[in-house]
Design a protein around this nucleic acid. Structure first.
Lengths: 336, 336
DNA sequence: CCGCTTTACGAAACCGCTTTACTAGATCGA
DNA sequence: TCGATCTAGTAAAGCGGTTTCGTAAAGCGG
């Protein structure tokens, strides 16, 4: 494989000149440039990235840390980040942490190892300070979708509180009064925000929030499936449930199916995320849509700014939108 | 940031010794080892990967090239590959080609650039020889799911022909005789195999294959949506359709919905892939399941063998399985 | 035609690790 | 006690680029 030396030899210049020429750091007379071009073509020369990286200390790669790349929400996000990165000449390193702290730590260590220039980080387990300590005062990390308290890095979030408010409000406007809520694991910023939005809508409408219609603790469908069955067992079950993520909704719908409760006739549901394909569900899911594409692109752009020594906004809040489909109906008077 | 030199200085040995010690290429007396360990801990030393890579010429990273990471099928596959790679100490570079030849070429060039040690490649556009030429006689590429004719690299495929046969057979066993088929783009091995399986089942059952019930050309849902509408316009429309990928099925179901034809009452459908979440569709989709997890893991293992200088099997055919759900019923006598 | 500025490059250090080839000193067998 | 073998390392040469500093020659204004 040809090196820059071989090219230099062939073009009758020094490696220095070749290097500077291909990096556009020098203007060369046409004849010299032509000789170098010819040599490069003749030898099929491509710079050894590893050498270049060692020399410059930059990898032109960033890490994208998601809880689980197989989930459509994250996959869609990864796709957007990758596309945006590609535009800027960056490649991306994927890692799925499976919500495992050790894997999250390993991902952060890649920064230290100079594996990547920067990191776009998403987590969905509450930090006990470990991640925060690892991120410390790094200037090459961006948080998206979920917070890690105590770190001073740019964040790109969505309007969780407002989204949850809108979702709940939508159910209220449809006539529901007994509205259940199933949220994610405790200690997460987005989870708390969504809960707050739900509570605000309920309070504002003067509706009672029954503790037995409130659940939370996990994003796993199985958790929300069980919670749903519990809801149904209460004296006056809710006529609608707001599930604060689409995977939570999947569990809710499984629970309802299991209990033979039909959606939306007997129970209305609204989700949060609006991940791809839920419009094909049975019924098509009404949900708050997170602007996944924007989340990914702006996340990358913030990181890119950091890497270019610029200062991106420290907090970006992206708007969410209610997507009306068929999982909500007016409550039946008289219950099941 | 501490270098191996700093560690050596602190531990009172040479950098050589430190290097060999941390790479397990030398046995050191306990006291020396302890000094080095202490120095590493004290200085929070982590080897600079870039330097190590330049020196060894290995990146311990592989590329994973998929058409579109946002699609659940590929996302699931990426997840499996990543997990398996992680187990072996490899990281993965993702790229979505969006079925764009230029992006595929760029991905392959990463090999040349020493960006990655090897590549797991998936394509879904027929090669005109470009990709084959680029892959040439490389010993660090593995093809999964789809062939690129004319290259001598290990392949991990699924039993496309048998799967299509099973799907068609399942429809025949349910009583269908007029069975439409919608396939993917021409020139692709998997597409042709699936078509062959369909034709074999039809022939074996003595059923007539009507040209007007045969379509193909694209994986895009919009294509199959339109093809479905065409099927419905024929004199005697099919009572069942085999769609040779789940995205094709999505289009088929959109078309049927548009024409107000209900599944499975008026039309049965069977898909191929069984990507995640289709069990939540309306109706839950009956499909041939590709062993996505195994595809990913075995793909990585084949590549890992290559990189270790071993010779993996040149062709692995993974079995597929029919997953029965609710998109197939017996045909209604008398049509719509 | 002399001093100054451009133009067009090059020498060498450096990035931080790995690895080959080698050695000083200790041990050991005869 | 002497050569052979082992132990415990080391010096130095890469890996293939980038970058800083510098210079020879040409151009040029006065």
């Amino acid at each position: 494989m040809a090196t820059i030396h071989d090219v230099a030899l062939d073009a009758n210049v020094s490696p220095t000149t070749v290097s500077r020429y291909i990096n556009n750091r020098i203007e060369l007379p046409a004849s010299t440039a032509a000789r170098i071009d010819a040599a490069i073509a003749k030898l099929d020369y491509r710079p050894n990235l590893l050498a270049r990286r060692l020399s410059t200390g930059r990898t032109e790669a960033i890490g994208l840390v998601t809880p689980e790349i197989r989930e459509p929400f994250f996959a869609e996000l990864a796709s957007a980040v990758e596309d945006e990165a590609d535009r800027h000449g960056y490649t991306i390193f994927m890692s799925s942490t499976r919500s495992d702290r050790q894997r999250e730590i390993a991902s952060l260590n890649r920064l230290h190892d100079r594996h990547v220039d920067g990191l776009i980080m998403m987590t969905n387990t509450a930090d006990d300070g470990t991640l925060a300590a690892l991120i410390g005062r790094r200037k090459n990390v961006v948080l998206i979708d979920e917070d890690i308290p105590g770190v001073a890095v740019p964040r790109v979030f969505v309007e969780n509180e407002i989204g949850a408010y809108k979702a709940t409000r939508y159910l209220i406007d449809a006539g529901h009064e007994k509205i259940g809520y199933i949220g994610g694991p405790g200690g997460l910023y987005s989870v708390e925000q969504r809960r707050a939005g739900y509570l605000r809508a309920m309070k504002e409408a003067g509706l009672k929030v029954r503790p037995e219609h409130l659940a939370g603790g996990s994003f796993a469908p199985d958790f929300s499936r069980k919670a749903t069955l519990e809801f149904l067992k209460t004296r006056t079950p809710p006529t609608a449930i707001f599930g604060s993520s689409d995977y939570i909704i999947i569990g809710i719908m499984q629970g309802l199916k299991q209990a033979d409760v039909s959606v939306p006739n007997q129970m209305s549901v609204v989700g949060f995320d609006d991940m791809p394909l839920t419009e094909l569900f049975n019924p098509p899911l009404t949900a708050i849509r997170q602007p996944i594409e924007a989340l990914g692109r702006q996340g990358f752009q913030a990181l890119f700014s950091l890497l270019s020594g610029k200062q991106p906004p420290m907090l970006t809040m992206l708007p969410v939108q209610l997507i009306e489909r068929d999982s909500v109906a007016s409550p039946r008077k008289g219950g099941f």
